[in-house]
Amino acid sequence: MPTESLWSIGELAERAGVTVKTVRFYSDRGLLPEAARSAGGHRRYGHDALDRLRTIRALRTLDLPVPDVGRVLGTDGALEDVVTERLRDVGTQLAALRWREAALRLLHDCAPEERVERLRLVGAVTVPPNTDALARFWRRWLPPRLPARVRSAVVEQAVPALPDEPAPHQVLAFARLHAFVTAPCPGGATRDDCQPAAHRDLDGFRPAVLYTGLGEAFTLAAPAIRAGRAPGAGEALDCFVAAYATAGGVRDTPGFRAGLSRVLAADPRVDRYWQLVTDLSAEPNPGTSHDWLRSALTAQAAGY
C-alpha cells in the first residue's frame, strides 16, 4: 500500500477520538499493528486500523484486560469464551459487594456494644464467602468408615447454599456458623467425645446404610415440615427408624423404637449448627428434619 494512502499516528488518533498516547499503547502491545513506517521512521496505519481500534475500545469499555482483548482479536470464536469468563468474574464481584453491603448494614444498625463482636465475626469470613470450612467440619463429624459417595451426599445436604442477596441477619448467621465449625470441641473434648453413638466403630454397624436411609427419611419428612404439620407416625418415621435398625442389623420392633428414642435423646448433637442454618434459610434441613422425626419417635415410644 502506498505510504501516502496511510495515516500517521496522529491522524488515526484524531479519527478515532483518542489520544496519540492511546494509539501508541495498543501498538506497543501488538493489538494495533502498523502497516508501514515513513522514511523518517514514523508509524503509518491502514484504514482498517480504525475499525480495529474501535473494537479495542469497545472491549476495554467492558473492562476486559488487555491480554483478553488480544485473545479476542487474535482467535476466531474467542469472544464468547472471554465474555463468559468476564460474566463469571463480574458475578463474583457482585456477590462480594452484596455481602459487604449486608455486613456494613449489620454493623451500622446494631447496638454500639454489639459492634466489636460482630466486626470480629464477619471479619473472619472471606468475601465473597465460601462454605469450605463447613464441608471440612462435616467430613470430621461423620464416621470415618463412611464411603466417599455417601460422605459427599451427606455433606451436600448438610452444607447450606448461601443466599445470592444476603440480609444482614443472614450475614451474622453465617459468620456465627463459620465460628462454630472452626472452634475446637468444648472443654478440650476429643473427637470421640463429640460423636453420636452411631459414629463409633462398632462391630457389624453399617454407617453407609444409616446415612443413606436418613437422607431418604429427611426427604420424606420435608413436605410435612413445610406444611407446618406436627410430628407424627407415617412413612417418613418408618424410614427413619428403619435406617437405624437396618444399619445395626436388628429388627424394627416397639422395643427397638423405645430404645432408639432414648439413645437419640442422649447423643451429642450439633443443634447450634442447625439453628444457624435455619437462620440462613427457612427451608427444611437435615437438622430440622431429624428433630421432627425424633419428636415423632418420642411421642410414639411414649405410647407403647
Rank of each mutant, 00 (worst) to 15 (best):
T3C: 08
E4L: 06
S5M: 05
L6D: 06
L6M: 09
S8W: 09
I9C: 11
L12I: 09
L12D: 10
A13M: 04
A16N: 05
V18A: 01
K21I: 01
V23P: 10
R24D: 15
R24S: 14
Y26E: 06
S27Y: 15
D28M: 04
D28Y: 08
R29F: 10
R29M: 10
L32M: 06
P33F: 13
A36C: 11
R37G: 12
G40P: 09
R44W: 05
D48H: 11
R54G: 01
I56W: 06
L59G: 05
L62Y: 04
D63R: 12
L64R: 08
P65S: 15
V66N: 09
P67L: 10
P67D: 04
V69L: 10
V69Q: 07
G70M: 08
R71D: 14
L73Y: 07
D81W: 00
V82I: 05
V82R: 06
V82T: 07
V83N: 07
E85A: 15
R88T: 14
D89R: 14
Q93S: 01
A96E: 04
W99R: 09
L106R: 02
P112Q: 08
V116D: 14
V116M: 04
E117G: 05
L121E: 05
A133C: 00
F137T: 03
R139S: 03
R140C: 09
R140T: 13
P143Q: 02
P147G: 06
A148C: 00
V150H: 00
E156I: 00
A158M: 10
P160S: 04
A161G: 12
P163V: 09
P166F: 07
P168I: 05
V171S: 01
F180S: 01
T182V: 07
A183R: 05
P186L: 11
A189D: 12
T190M: 02
T190V: 04
D192H: 09
P196S: 03
P196E: 04
A198F: 11
R200Y: 08
R200M: 06
L202S: 11
R206P: 01
A208E: 13
A208H: 08
L210M: 07
L210F: 06
L214H: 11
A217E: 13
A217M: 13
L220H: 05
L220M: 12
P223N: 03
A224N: 10
G232V: 06
A233V: 13
E235Q: 13
L237H: 03
L237A: 03
L237F: 03
C239F: 00
F240P: 03
A242V: 03
A245S: 15
A247N: 06
G249W: 11
D252N: 15
G259W: 09
G259D: 13
R272L: 14
W274S: 12
Q275G: 14
Q275S: 13
L276W: 04
V277Q: 05
D279M: 14
E283K: 07
P286V: 08
P286I: 08
T288R: 15
S289E: 11
D291G: 06
L297M: 11
T298L: 06
A299G: 13
Q300D: 13
A302C: 01
